[in-house]
């Protein structure tokens, strides 16, 4: 009985020493995951996830505070990619945070704009040009479609225009089969 106890204590102490030493030796700081999660997020900076931008959301996911399905612009595809990266089960987009919409850009009705600069301050990517008392305009190529400029506008002169397909952005579609051989049942 005593020997048994002694043996177990001996084992425990030995392992404790080895592990304690390696805990100091192999100490890790920083989390490389944030950057990798951030790379998957669509960077619209829209805040629909409940965090003030994509990076904070990425940090929250890495810490395990946020779920992977809170990003409407990323949609199910984004959630899938995050699930794969994090090694967790895929969850469909949580609709409390909004629905995935087709990509749009903001458009300022320049005849109504009063030049209040409020939208400029709201834009997370500095995609609105203009100065006080002067008409503003959107740099369409930089606009992420986050819609954050809509609420501050006192005269509601900003609208979201969906980006239409033209002969340059046109894509080949997924081919259509002749017989149905996907497995529904």
């Amino acid at each position: 009985m005593i020997t048994a106890l002694l043996v177990m204590i001996f084992l425990a102490v030995l392992l404790g020493l080895i592990l304690g030493y390696s805990a100091i030796k192999f100490k890790v700081d920083g989390d490389p995951m944030v950057a990798r999660i951030d790379a998957i997020l669509p960077q619209t900076q829209c805040g629909q996830c409940g965090y003030p931008g994509c990076k904070p959301y990425a940090t929250a996911i890495a810490k395990g505070e946020a779920d992977i399905n809170q990003c409407p612009p990323g949609g199910d595809t984004g959630a899938k990619a995050l699930a794969e990266l994090m090694g967790v089960e895929f969850k469909p987009l949580n609709q409390e945070h909004g629905l995935q919409k087709p990509k749009s850009v903001a458009l300022i009705d320049e005849s109504t704009c009063i030049g209040c600069t409020l939208c400029i301050q709201a834009c997370p990517v500095d995609a609105i040009l203009g100065a006080a008392k002067q008409m503003h305009t959107i740099i369409a190529s930089e606009c992420t479609g986050c819609e954050l400029c809509l609420p501050p506008c006192p005269v509601d002169c900003i609208t979201m225009e969906p980006v239409l397909e033209n002969s340059q952005s046109w894509k080949w579609k997924y081919p259509v089969y002749n017989i149905q051989n996907t497995t529904g049942a």
């Binding site: 084992l11 425990a12 392992l15 592990l19 390696s22 805990a23 192999f26 490389p32 990266l85």
Partner: peptide, 23 residues
């Protein structure tokens, strides 16, 4: 006990040297 110790050791080793693999 021994195996738990070895696994713990491997885990620390990986977290330090192969962080992505660890994740």
């Amino acid at each position: 006990v021994v195996i738990a110790g070895v696994v713990q050791f491997t885990e620390m080793l990986m977290e330090k040297n192969f962080p992505l693999l660890y994740q």
